[in-house]
Amino acid sequence: MIEHVVLRVIAKLLAPFIVLFALYVQFHGDFGPGGGFQAGVIFASAFILYALIYGVENARQIAPPAVAQAAIGLGVLIYAGTGVASMLLGGKYLDYSLLAHDAGHGQHYGILIVEFGVGVTVAAVMITVFFTFAGRRGVLEAREDVATTEDDEDR
């Protein structure tokens, strides 16, 4: 779809705003609707939009698969690590009250950190799943090529 000028320009214009909106949803989830799950999906949709218009290869250069795959685990680690941190501070697992000088701030920080972990994992999984599906087409075509060359060798 790279030949459509309108799509190209609009996609490039929209992408930063989509990312900005994702960050707003992520870090404003304690005051309005939203949170890590929605923010992660919106964040990923900016990259998927870019990949749809400019091709998966270009999108892979912006979001390298290795980074995205590492981020899948990183988000879970942030979440679970917050629980471990509260245990090390002498509380129960995922009891955020001890993360700051008073319980209210502790809860607030804990919720923000944990939601950030959720957002990282969701965004990374969505990007990775899309890249894997989109890259699969190339794999299939390559396999057909290999199959035909093998047929040639048999003859």
């Binding site: 304690d30 609707p33 679970a80 969701v122």
Partner: peptide, 28 residues
């Protein structure tokens, strides 16, 4: 924190949400 949904999801049911994140992790 005005959004009760967020506090319920991330604090009261933090362990439950951790499970959901692990489900997404496993799917990926």
């Amino acid at each position: 924190i005005p959004n009760v949904v967020t506090t319920t999801l991330a604090s009261y049911r933090g362990f439950d949400t951790l499970g959901e994140v692990v489900v997404i992790f496993t799917a990926g």
